[in-house]
Computed example of a mutant assay.
Amino acid sequence: MSGRVRVGTVDELGPGERTIVEIDGEAVGVLNVEGDYYAIQNTCEHMGGPVCSGRVQGKLVAEFVEPGKRPEEDFSDDKTIACPWHGWEYELETGEHIGDDSISLETYDVVVEDGVVYVE
């Protein structure tokens, strides 16, 4: 990677906001999710869809109580993003596909310095 890429100010990328930057010819989405910043490859591994324009939510987790009973489901604090084309879902922190950890998107470190957001 070619060092640090300026994304914008924290005011320009407030909670719930997202933007796309180019890093070494690759489109990378930078998202502010509840005050936490994430940077992830914007090209879905399935069919190349724009992952970073998809839905962000907590990761769905389930616990099987006993055979024949419906699992108890809840959303964790771990955030995921789903490609809007076909719903392939990835963990924002690691880029791993939900359900198949052999598939993943590139993730990048995000740094905030003096009110400016950078991807490293």
Rank of each mutant, 00 (worst) to 15 (best):
22 E>C: 03
53 S>C: 12
31 L>Q: 05
42 N>C: 06
72 E>F: 06
61 V>S: 05
41 Q>L: 06
32 N>D: 08
15 P>M: 02
5 V>C: 11
107 T>N: 11
4 R>I: 03
92 L>Y: 02
109 D>A: 11
65 V>F: 10
47 M>F: 05
86 H>F: 01
16 G>W: 03
102 S>V: 13
52 C>I: 04
72 E>I: 09
68 G>H: 10
96 E>R: 06
53 S>P: 09
117 V>S: 09
77 D>P: 01
14 G>H: 07
16 G>I: 00
86 H>W: 00
117 V>W: 09
41 Q>S: 13
110 V>L: 11
62 A>Y: 06
35 G>H: 13
40 I>L: 15
94 T>L: 04
87 G>W: 00
53 S>N: 15
111 V>A: 12
79 K>Q: 08
103 I>Q: 04
62 A>K: 13
85 W>N: 05
6 R>C: 11
50 P>N: 14
103 I>W: 01
21 V>C: 07
73 E>Y: 11
76 S>E: 14
20 I>A: 00
113 E>F: 00
47 M>I: 06
68 G>I: 02
115 G>N: 10
82 A>N: 10
83 C>F: 01
80 T>Q: 06
20 I>N: 02
37 Y>K: 02
36 D>C: 04
89 E>N: 02
22 E>P: 00
42 N>V: 07
61 V>M: 11
34 E>T: 02
78 D>Q: 10
2 S>E: 13
17 E>S: 11
55 R>C: 05
